[in-house]
Design a protein around this nucleic acid. Sequence first.
DNA 1: TTGAAAGCGATACCAT
DNA 2: ATGGTATCGCTTTCAA
Lengths: 357, 357
Amino acid sequence: MQRKATAQDVAKLAGVSRSAVSLVLNGHGDGNIASESQVRIRQAAKDLNYKPNAVALSLRNQQTRIIGIVSDRVISGPVDGNIIAGADAVARARGFVTLGLDTEQDEQRDASAVETLLDRHVDALMYVTVGLRELRVPAGMEKAPAILANCFDSRGPGHLGNVIPDEVWGGAEALRHVLAAGHRRLGFLTGPLDHPAVQHRLEGYRQAMAEAGLPFPDGAVLPVGWDIADGFAAASTALAAPAGERPTALLCANDRCAVGAVLAARGLGLQVPGDVSIVGYDDEERVADTMVPTLSTMALPLREIGAAAMTRILASLPRAARKATAGQQPDRTILEGEELIRGRFVDRASLGPVPAS
Amino acid sequence: MQRKATAQDVAKLAGVSRSAVSLVLNGHGDGNIASESQVRIRQAAKDLNYKPNAVALSLRNQQTRIIGIVSDRVISGPVDGNIIAGADAVARARGFVTLGLDTEQDEQRDASAVETLLDRHVDALMYVTVGLRELRVPAGMEKAPAILANCFDSRGPGHLGNVIPDEVWGGAEALRHVLAAGHRRLGFLTGPLDHPAVQHRLEGYRQAMAEAGLPFPDGAVLPVGWDIADGFAAASTALAAPAGERPTALLCANDRCAVGAVLAARGLGLQVPGDVSIVGYDDEERVADTMVPTLSTMALPLREIGAAAMTRILASLPRAARKATAGQQPDRTILEGEELIRGRFVDRASLGPVPAS
DNA sequence: TTGAAAGCGATACCAT
DNA sequence: ATGGTATCGCTTTCAA
């Protein structure tokens, strides 16, 4: 912590009292301070490169302008941190800063992370998960305004509000694109059936089939996992059927799974998308866009989720930084309910027309 | 910022003054406060779940116990945040917290990120990059103790100290494993030749060849890029040669590039590692370990780099948190020089013996 | 052994 | 219009 100019220094240079400095620099000077004093004060502040000490302000205002973010494996993990990036962008635009603690998927660290943040007197809390999932809200989170991003309260609705991707819509939208390309023999390489995102997407798949007046082919659902090897194994099986029976399009649980599916197709001597189309999910950077062939995929609106969650939490804070105690009540109703955000389908090379056969 | 018990509350409950509370709770009570008062104070603190207000402490001690981290695309990016995780683990173990700002590769945000951090009066700064590179140190970084992780000062040595992976050793070590498997016809799918990591690894490759008494095959170096598509293109060319001439092992710039190489091999009807061995670099989570086949690769010691950088920066801080101003000088010499960290070779399935042919 | 008081930096009320 | 002063919560020196 280096030493910088204080209000006192500015006051001395301008030949006034520090109260005058404070008044002027906060815009309350107009009815109170002689305008020529105001000029001198502003000049002095500029000369000294004066910035109010954030720590002193925090103490004085009982507001740190820090939003604490607990994440399960977003910061340290190999996956996209765009939720946090989106949240941070909103926070910074409003003079807040985010303080992130990653538990690295160790549930025991949840409560201690919250405690650390609370000890630092963050103004609000946000919990971010790497994948959509149920969250056992850590102890202590009720002690500050809080919101969940990409996860939902295990105690059910009516507790902590949250922002999540609209997976029902996402599943439906992805399938709509596949159907529009003419595909009818499909394979759904989903993640585990007990995963909430998988359930939602399946519902979306059913919706899209119904919209198209098609029956839903239950046998086409192949629950696997989220990794390359999972996609490889499932696709190897699904594509082993003779040309007239095998699926002409595979909808995968995510882009890595799709990579495995492409690998499997190539192993069987099949072209993508010539013989089989493959659609991913997530639009993972440096995977979907640089894969061979590039992956058509349903993008997850991660940045938007983070931004929406941060927007809500900031709106719940008492206005104006000052008078946090006496002033108006924080508007907690903003923190209730679930907000669904839609992604968008990214059309690249791996989805093509139905093979002529 | 919720209201919590203050030292005043503890004092009242224990029937003493707040100075007594402070003395006792900081271990300075022994020669000063009656031992029975001490017991009462400790009990009262426990009853009220008293924790000193971190903000007030920061103001009083002129030390926030926050380390600011600026990163170019580590938090928001799709790549491993393990450097930050390693740094954070060290910091938290010593009662510090890290405040990370990601510039998302926008150089213009560099200085403003540093400024934001400095405005928050962080005790020290760290700059983390997603890949090894030269860094034009942002303005303002000299205003606090600072260190570089995974990058190096563009002004050359003797300026900001740094911690980076030992890429020369890494290149040599990877090649040693390939040579030990018997391979002699090699292909080096490196990143761009002007990239520092590529230059270092190339030097390592030469070393390992020399150690083995082999000439270095300049024609085997195929500089490409870092993505799947790059690896695919380069490997497609390299492996197009007839069986007796084509390389039996490919050393790739990173794991994604290796994925592209595997894709290319499969496209040519070649087995990995049956016909050609493929070695990655980075040991990227959820790629190297779940690829089909799983990737043998040179792991980058990201966590260790973060931990080492944080260790050095904390060691440079004035001891004991108190008497920051008057007390001893910060030990800046610790922040000088370059520290090289070695990774380790991870032996999985993609590296095999030379094909019988 | 204990408590009163100064000070970290900024703000806002209240006399002047 | 201006400046003195209490306050935020804590630490530490100095008197009593």
